[in-house]
Every structure is written in structure tokens, then in C-alpha cells.
Amino acid sequence: MAVVTSAVLIAACGSSSGSSGAAAAGDKPFAGQTLIFGGGQADANESIMGAMAAKFKEETGADVQFIGGSAPDNLSKLLAAKGRSTPPFDAVFLDSTTQPAAAQAGLIQQVDYKTALQSYSQFPGTGFPTQGYGPGYFLIRLGTCYNTEVYKQLGLNPPTSLDDWFDPKLQGRVALPDTTNFYWGAAMPAIAKNYNIPLDDPAALMSKFRDIHAQTLFTSSSDAQQRLQTGQVAMTTLTDGRCLALKLAGQPVDLAPVNVVADGKTYPYINFVDTVDIVTGSPKTELAKKFIDMYTSSTALMPYIQKTGYVPARQDVYAEAKQDPKLAPYYGAFDSATDLYTPDMTAFLAHQAAWIDAWNNNVKQGG
């Protein structure tokens, strides 16, 4: 994932002068304020913030300063600033792999979102991955992204389950996420559940991954995408948006389900959620609530959804997306997050250090 380190002030164009401008500002309690948002990758920011900036300015009188990064990067920045009088952000993008850690460390505010958000009723229960903390804006389906041409060359049928990751014919032709890539944290507890491997004993799963002889352990999702579309690797794990964006652009790739078996049910994809939270210590809590309402809305998200096929967390936005004939085939029978396997990230967090050590000692270093 590309990381943007510069700060960008996103403000609506236009001007006003004289008494009418003063009156307009007086009607907006947040006029003249700037909300600092610790966001994600550049392409998502340009689309989402570009779509909502003018409306947010019109309704609140406030601007938004975007600081690009990633969920792990944003968590690191919050941890580094803990205890300081002023946090680095007012609102922050995290995900369901990093939000529990941020909550446990007291870095994000626990809020009664039922009263804080006008859009609260549009979020299913899984729309709030960590109880009491910020909502999701995208439900991310993590699956197998594979190069259709390479699979044909290897004489392989399209992948249909996690077992296909470990096919001997794919040795040396697989790209796996490394521990610093958030796909790793989302995938490991789900894969452990599928193979009935307890979270306190990762050794058996590590041996399976070691035998793949992965071509690369990627930290950047862009690296995996590049290797996949050029045929250097036959398959990798990618989010639906990244994989389907390649397909929508005409690349010979497709997204296949992993079919996680858990507690007697089969789930086609692993679910993790991109979230947005209010940062502890921010003096702009009320403005941040309005920001979250709009950031999760159709106004903000639909332009990016049309480029990527991501699933919005809000039910009203998803209903709109499913009406788009270009997007409908990429959603299929998927109806809600209950159709996806959502790992218990709080439980995994308690064992994560041991999993990282096991991965580094067995997979990264070859055992």
C-alpha cells in the first residue's frame, strides 16, 4: 500500500464577502475550524475526500486536513503521541486488525454512536467491529486473487478454498503478506480457525506456510499486485477492491473465495473492516462526529466504490451500489457481513506476538 506522508488541506472552492458571508459563518458553529484526519492511501483519499469536501464545508463551515498513511502507520503515530497534550489527528482511519489495539491503549474515544450519528440505523451490528468504537465504512472481503492466464498455463482449476494455497504446483509462485501488512493479521486467525489450530499454538500452521516456498513476503500490497498482473506469481491474497480494480481495468486476474469453514458454517471470504474513529484528546469531538457521518455516506464513497467494487458498511449505501449494473456481478449473492467470516481480533491480539515470532522463525527464515 502506498503511503502518503504529506498533509493536504482539502477545502471547498468559493468565496463570500461582506455581511452575507458573516451571517453564513454565524450559522455554522464549526466555521473556521480545520479537522485533522489521519487517513489512508492516496487514491482512496483523493476520491472520497474530493467527493465530500464541498458538502462538508457547506454544512459545517469547516475544512479537513488529510494526512495520508495506513492503518498500522496511524496506530504507530497515535502510540508515539500518547500522553502529549495534542494528538496528531482529530479523526483517524484504522481497521478491524488495529482498532482493538488502539482501543485497549486508550488512543480512540469510546462514544455512544447510537446518539452521535444520524446514520446509526444504517449500520448492521458488524458495522461496529469493536463495541463502543468507530464504525466501518468498507467491509473488506479478503480472498484469493489469481492470474487466470498463469493458472491455465499450469493446468490448474480456479481456486475454491484455502487448501488451494498449499497446492504443490504453486510452490514458488505464491506471494504472501508479511507480518507488517494488515492482510496478515486478518488472515491468520481465520486460517487457524479453518484448520482447527488453536491460537496459542501456531506451529502447525507455520509448517504449512513454510512448505509453500513463497516467492515473496510482501509488505506493500502494490508489490503483490504488480507481481500478479505480470504473471510472476500465480496467486496471492488481496482485498476485493484491489483485486477487482485490476479486473475492472482489464487485467487477467479474478477474485476467488477462500471458503473458511468455522463452527459448521462455510464463509466465502474473510472479513475485516476499514474503520473511522475519534481520537482521544481531540478538542473537535462534535465536528468529528459530523465528519464520520459524511465520510461513511454515499456522497463520499460511491465514486470510489465504482472504481474498486468495495462493499460499503452502511446498508443504504450498499443498496445503492447493488443497483449499479457494473458492480452487481462483483457482489453476487453477498448480502451482509454475516455472510463473511469475521475473526475475533481481540482474541488474536493476545497471541499476536507469539504468531509473529513463529512466522519469522519458520516462514521468513525458512525454518
Rank of each mutant, 00 (worst) to 15 (best):
L287N: 02
I292K: 05
D254A: 15
Y304R: 12
Q251H: 15
P268I: 07
K290A: 01
F272W: 08
M294R: 07
T275C: 04
V276R: 00
D254H: 12
K289Q: 15
A300P: 04
K289P: 07
S298W: 08
K307Q: 14
V273I: 13
P303R: 08
G309C: 09
P257N: 13
Y267H: 06
N271T: 01
L248M: 14
Y304S: 00
V273W: 02
A262V: 04
A262R: 02
I278R: 00
K247W: 09
D277A: 08
T299W: 02
K289N: 12
T266H: 05
Y295T: 07
D274W: 03
V253R: 11
K307T: 12
L255Q: 11
E286C: 00
K265I: 02
K290N: 08
L246D: 01
Y304H: 14
V253P: 13
Y267K: 00
K289W: 14
K289E: 15
T266K: 09
A256Y: 13
L301Y: 10
T308K: 02
Y295W: 13
V260N: 03
G281E: 07
S297T: 12
T285Y: 08
M302D: 07
I270D: 08
T299N: 04
I292R: 03
I270N: 03
Q306T: 00
T266Q: 11
